[in-house]
């Protein structure tokens, strides 16, 4: 969509006005300064998804819409997690779980670990689940982003 203030609120407003749900949303500028890319995860019957796409296309500031699930695609989300070990011997277990999920410990204090993990949403869910034995202080998720596999692309 056009990299202009107001464009995002049109998208979000459309979803709330028409009663569509937003499961996750992420927006950032692209290599082209005039454009930003928005990735939104929603659900609904085929007819609803078709309406959502048509309604999005009607917004003047939306340049192009693509349903990634029409393609083979790659999906990623990043999570930052701050945990506190329940006992001192739990520290190794935190490191192990982080390793299994290919997480990176990116910050430490005398009590807490901050871990970065990325992957598909379900992987992040599983990671959180595995950390339930510890004291979870804070969870930050970026929302999902995605891209089509192979040579398919959303390019203007």
């Amino acid at each position: 969509m056009e990299n202009e203030s107001g464009a995002l609120s049109r998208v979000v407003g459309l979803f709330s006005a028409r009663g569509y749900n937003i499961e996750s949303l992420s927006v950032a500028p692209t290599d082209d300064d005039s454009l930003s890319r928005l990735t939104l995860v929603t659900s609904g019957s085929e007819q609803i998804i078709e309406q959502i796409i048509k309604q999005l296309n009607k917004l003047i500031e939306i340049v192009k819409v693509s349903d990634l699930s029409d393609f083979k695609y790659i999906e990623r989300e990043m999570m930052l997690l701050k945990v506190e070990a329940k006992h001192t011997d739990a520290i190794t277990s935190i490191k192990q779980v982080a390793d299994i999920f290919r997480g990176k410990i990116i910050d430490l204090s005398n009590k807490t670990f901050t871990i970065e993990v990325s992957g598909q949403g379900e992987k992040l869910d599983a990671f959180l689940e595995a950390m339930q034995d510890q004291i979870i202080i804070e969870v930050v998720r970026s929302g999902c982003i995605g891209i089509a596999r192979g040579s398919n692309s959303l390019k203007i």
């Binding site: 048509k54 296309n57 009607k58």
Partner: peptide, 11 residues
């Protein structure tokens, strides 16, 4: 003329 009018209420 508006694609969003089509198949909105009736297929």
């Amino acid at each position: 003329i508006d694609p969003a009018s089509i198949s909105k209420n009736v297929m």
